[in-house]
Design a binder for these strands. Structure first.
Lengths: 213, 213
DNA sequence: GACAAAGTAGACCGGATGGTCTAACCTGTC
DNA sequence: GACAGGTTAGACCATCCGGTCTACTTTGTC
């Protein structure tokens, strides 16, 4: 890991990070060009390849940076041992996350562009693997806990359920972020969260809750 | 439209189509290479560019072919004027579609690779636009009809709902197709459809149905 | 058989990609 | 001031991309 053994001064680091974030946010992780990032950063190719082994190595650093910022702002979530509190905790955490996201739209773009391909089956996770895997593990943990508490249904293949939840979350968030960009003043995050949670409850609630009617 | 004015014999056409379908199914529409398709088809570059103006023009033809095959096998769906029959019709149609898909997995790959990018906001639809737009219009029509019949909720932004439905459908289908590939004998399409429809009902049912409990 | 048009092969092109390499330049040490 | 090692610039490279172009062969017509 060349990037750890050789330390580059903060100025270069941040101009590279900014350039990468800008480029990835604009073109997605698949469409981003390392050449353009380097150009954008104002550094020379020699320097960049001196500190980072290759493109993937830089991407990994970028994603770790994004992860770091996100966790610093939103914190980690501990699922309570109380079934009734489950959704409340989710509500709080989701709200916190969205508020961070709303004022860091560029970072959101980057993070989501890393996740997006994972949404569909094909993905050569590779370098970015660890951060993505942490996120996945976290999601699984929340779902499992919810199931143990009896708050979430258990009658469906776990992976299927997880994928659906992820896709729905991703999609609803997309809608919100679009709106935040086009008419930011019309957005009511609290209201969105309560809608989103209603959607999650519909999807995840144990069978029979609503069917007994 | 060069491809219509000049007609290429069936043999060449089908070898090109096969090559394109193979390539797109393997690499997705974004990752597919025109050069590789041409190579794969056994035709020369001269021939292919003689009949098709460019890559997009071929892709358009491929998607139209896929659309044609799908419609021929599955037919079009007419929403009944009866609220109670709404979900039954959906059930039948969905089952039919999945049964066709199950025995045409390569074509499914192609179709889905066209749709996939549309799932996320970014998309330069371009050539493929028309077929994709038809599919979208059809989806909107079904949802609108369902709303008019009172079978589907109307308390949410229409586009948001449509996107969620699309994402959920896409995701559940992914799961099914994965399973069809890995353990085809363990798959029960009827059971899957009833699960999927339950999911759609959860998401789409008008508010209050389950909440009055 | 002559001639034109339709069809075919594949070398070639410009531009992009990620990545390498060398020559020079600093900067600290003796 | 010489030397060494860390650092830097950017020319260069192979490879891929979609697309063009020219020279050739086939085919149909008179």
């Amino acid at each position: 890991m060349r990037s750890r053994s050789r330390k580059l001064d903060e100025e270069k680091r941040s101009s590279l990070m900014d350039a990468a974030i800008e480029e990835i946010a604009a073109n997605g992780i698949e469409g981003a060009s390392y050449n353009r990032i380097i150009e954008r950063s104002g550094l020379s190719k020699g320097v960049v390849y001196y500190y980072f082994e290759n493109k993937e190595s830089l991407y990994k650093t970028v994603l770790e940076e994004v992860e770091r910022q996100f966790i610093a702002a939103v914190g980690t979530l501990r699922i309570p041992d109380d079934k009734d509190a489950f959704w409340d905790v989710c509500d709080m955490h989701y709200t916190k996350a969205l508020k961070f996201a709303a004022s860091n739209l560029r970072i959101v773009d980057v993070a989501r562009s890393f996740i997006e391909p994972a949404c569909s089956p094909s993905m050569d996770k590779g370098p970015v693997f660890e951060s993505l895997q942490r996120a996945e593990r976290w999601m699984k943990y929340v779902l499992r806990k919810g199931q143990e508490l009896g708050a979430l249904r258990q009658d469906v293949d776990f992976e299927l359920l997880r994928n659906v939840v992820q896709a729905v979350g991703y999609t609803m968030d997309s809608w919100l972020f679009d709106k935040l960009r086009s008419e930011p003043d019309a957005v009511d995050i609290e209201r969105f969260v309560s809608f989103a949670l209603d959607m999650f409850k519909r999807i995840l609630s144990p069978k029979g809750l609503g069917e007994s009617c």
